[in-house]
Design a protein around this nucleic acid. Structure first.
Length: 219
DNA sequence: AAAACGGGGGC
DNA sequence: GCCCCAGTTTT
């Protein structure tokens, strides 16, 4: 698949997006109500966790503390209890506490707005850093999670082993003005149609363009 | 490169 | 009961 076709796919998916009723609660539907700190913390909570669970856990935590100063006053146990159903709660609580401390003590209460600085925070990798850049600061960023990695390979647009390779390829092949649309669209698409194991190809609006790399079963 | 971190939900 | 989920860090 070439770049022009990939962009055509994005355009089609964008039109179909409202029909999917994808469970994008915490990071997309409410982004305009959230501070950069809340986006960052929600993203930490979302690691390997379903979106609905992430949303509920975030709300519980933000009722206790929605800014780094208040968050720093909570104990790790309090944070862990609030986010418990999201899983990895001890690691995440520790990470959230450390991040709050760094933001308060070394960055005058502000979330960093550059990739380099975000990556220095504990528990923040490329996916989280790029998502914060895109959602909080409206900067162009290619945010590659498991959905983006799977779908771009399945379409035949990239041939990569790791999400990091996928990120590099997408930055190379896709014009910058499309970067911030990739993640939202492909995640929603992956949650509803282009599923990991048994994608619903008969309902897929872009099946005609797809090379179905690695797809063994479909419906 | 592989393990560890984890409860919840789908089937 | 078994497998997967908007990943990152450590071994």
């Amino acid at each position: 698949m070439d770049t022009a076709t990939f962009i055509r796919v994005l355009n089609i998916l964008e039109k179909e997006f409202p029909k999917w009723n994808a469970p994008v609660v915490s990071l997309m539907a409410k982004r305009e109500h959230r501070t950069p700190f809340q986006i960052l913390i929600s993203t930490i909570i979302s690691l390997r966790t379903k979106d609905q669970v992430t949303a509920e856990a975030s709300e519980r935590l933000f009722k206790l503390a929605d800014n780094p100063y208040d968050m720093l006053k909570l104990t790790e146990e309090q944070i862990a209890k609030a986010i418990y159903p999201a899983g990895f709660y001890r690691n995440k609580a520790k990470t959230i506490k450390k991040i709050s401390e760094i933001i308060v003590k070394k960055n005058s209460g502000e979330v960093p707005d550059s990739l380099e600085e975000l990556l220095k925070l504990p528990g923040v990798g490329r996916k989280t850093a790029n998502l914060v850049l895109a959602l909080s600061f409206d900067k162009p960023a290619v945010c590659v999670d498991i959905h983006v990695h799977r779908i771009t390979n399945r379409l035949g647009f990239v041939k990569t082993k790791t999400p990091e390779e996928t990120e590099k390829e997408l930055m190379k092949k896709v014009p910058v003005e499309y970067w911030n649309r990739i993640n939202d669209l492909l995640v929603a698409f992956g949650q509803t149609i282009c599923k990991p194991l048994s994608p619903l190809c008969s309902k897929c609006p872009v099946e005609a363009y797809c090379e179905k790399v690695g797809v063994v079963r479909h419906r």
